[in-house]
Nucleic acid binder design. Sequence first.
DNA 1: CCCGATGGCTTAACCGGTTCAGCGAAGCAG
DNA 2: CTGCTTCGCTGAACCGGTTAAGCCATCGGG
Lengths: 343, 343
Amino acid sequence: MGSVMRRPTIMDVARAAGVSKGAVSYALNGRPGVSEATRARILAVARELGWAPSNPARALAPGGRVGAIGMVVDRPARSLGIEPFFMRLVSGIETELTSSGIDLMLQVTEDVAAELAVYRRWATERRVDGVIMVDLRVEDPRPALARDLPLPAVILGGPEGTGGVPCLYTDDAVSVREVVHYLAALGHRRIVRVAGPEFFAHTRSRTEAFREAARLAGVAEARTVHADYTGEEGARVTRRLLATADPPTALVYDNDLMAVAALGVASEMGVDVPGRLSIVAWDDSALCRLVRPSLTAIARDVVGNGREAARMLGGLLAEERVDDVETPPGELRPRGSTGPLSH
Amino acid sequence: MGSVMRRPTIMDVARAAGVSKGAVSYALNGRPGVSEATRARILAVARELGWAPSNPARALAPGGRVGAIGMVVDRPARSLGIEPFFMRLVSGIETELTSSGIDLMLQVTEDVAAELAVYRRWATERRVDGVIMVDLRVEDPRPALARDLPLPAVILGGPEGTGGVPCLYTDDAVSVREVVHYLAALGHRRIVRVAGPEFFAHTRSRTEAFREAARLAGVAEARTVHADYTGEEGARVTRRLLATADPPTALVYDNDLMAVAALGVASEMGVDVPGRLSIVAWDDSALCRLVRPSLTAIARDVVGNGREAARMLGGLLAEERVDDVETPPGELRPRGSTGPLSH
DNA sequence: CCCGATGGCTTAACCGGTTCAGCGAAGCAG
DNA sequence: CTGCTTCGCTGAACCGGTTAAGCCATCGGG
């Protein structure tokens, strides 16, 4: 009150407790070197003064950590706002971090070059202790960068092409097969998959799995077209597909947003769902349950994955050995948007 | 190659350039105190060594800044993933920060108490230089906390109840009036507004404006009910409203998510939109354009607001005088979900 | 009783920047 | 030529922690 209160430093605590600042440091960090009586007194004084460690000072000390990890999201700005995936991931990451007092830095970039620049800056300026990388690409330059900088990292994706960086991956082929067999069983023989951009690694592996599964399930016509995950492009592609002479009877989308857009397009073109067209979304979010008909979707535990990735990165930072982790495949949740063809 | 390369420090640059580290600091920060020739040489050496300032060291120096700002999002986790508002805000904030090399820390909390704890921690541990606060509440404890800590802050909301913290606000009453008159002109006389939680300041001011506007527009029946912004609850409330004897003919939602849910409920109950029910969403996102019928919405420049808020916080950190800023009211975008009643 | 080990604390160096005071040389006015 | 100012740089303190090294008192064993 009146005078401006300076944040108390460890030195203030030391003076108030009548010991050296070294002793205070030992006491506060629960390390040996002080008696239990002294430790208790120091803790009491620190609490009373409202002391908290200065993060910059801690980080600066030899071997010190910044206490923050980073995540770069590199998606077209116009799809970002609406794509539920990232916020769910963030909330998963944070549930894991909260207990350890680690913060999350988020950065949105426009392209890969900018993303790489961010990692470089974060590493050289010591702004984060490590990063979580999402959206693994074909020939992704990021694992090599992480190794060279060096910058501890965990990748969501893989397990191929991660160049030694620990990763959290899912075998999408399982889900792809499940979807294809499900649709085939419903009688569908012309299925088109509207995928994300070709340069994403998971897009490619799903594409291969899709082709193979279709062959095995005896689906005559099965192909993949690419879009950019935005609702606009999802709508455009869908419109084009439905306008052909012999339109597909089932469409599988690589994210929920495009699937919702497809629903709108079908309604606008008077195509009955699921009577004449079945729609499947990859990644189940609340969105899929809100629209009508509700969307059949492949549900992954995105929040849990975020949490697990954060845990892995934590292990990495603690110099523990961290192995790749495989998460359970996404499971099909049949809803109103899929069904047999009505004649 | 071979040996582990230590990050070059300012001292390495100084030795390589044959000057003291003080001189290097002056040169790199563009301050007077070194000749142009020396400055050029130092810059060349620094670039060659790949030097970048250690952020913790900078922050630790007297008067140093952390180079990061924070934002806490306090919403129920289940609506977070899908709520487009925050990601759009984040991307706006970042467009402003990118040029200045400031990072954004994001934290998701479960309640206000946790949110306050985060601010406290960020301030006492010196993890951020300032924060952007969203979702101003009635009797919001955050402005006082920001003043006491102290923690530079900018609030999205207000201008009442911000307790001296600079804010970025919109006069929602303008948009509320526009919506009400629009619906009244279409012939609607029973309008219900499905608002967000009552404890948000903007909820309350919209509620008042809504009542007043309805009176002026001669709308006989106009009331507000509250929900929590989630699709689930939006759906539940809508179902209840439509099941009454004399159901409302128009519903106005406080966010886009609940409006989408309402569309689903209407379809499920066989209520034609807009033939028997008009629906308006507050906050226009791509979502509103994807569903069918597309949603009439009130569009705000969320991205621009994020950007402006970041700019204001920047000014605050630069010790400039920062005034409250009023942004243009959200504008009504009529689409397919509203229309006259059909008989 | 003496010696070595141990516990408990202090001292001081260190992290990597920023900045202030000071100092020699050069420039300039008188 | 002298004295003052300015320029360009150096040296050192400082930010607030962590931690290695050292020192003194106590204690147990032989």
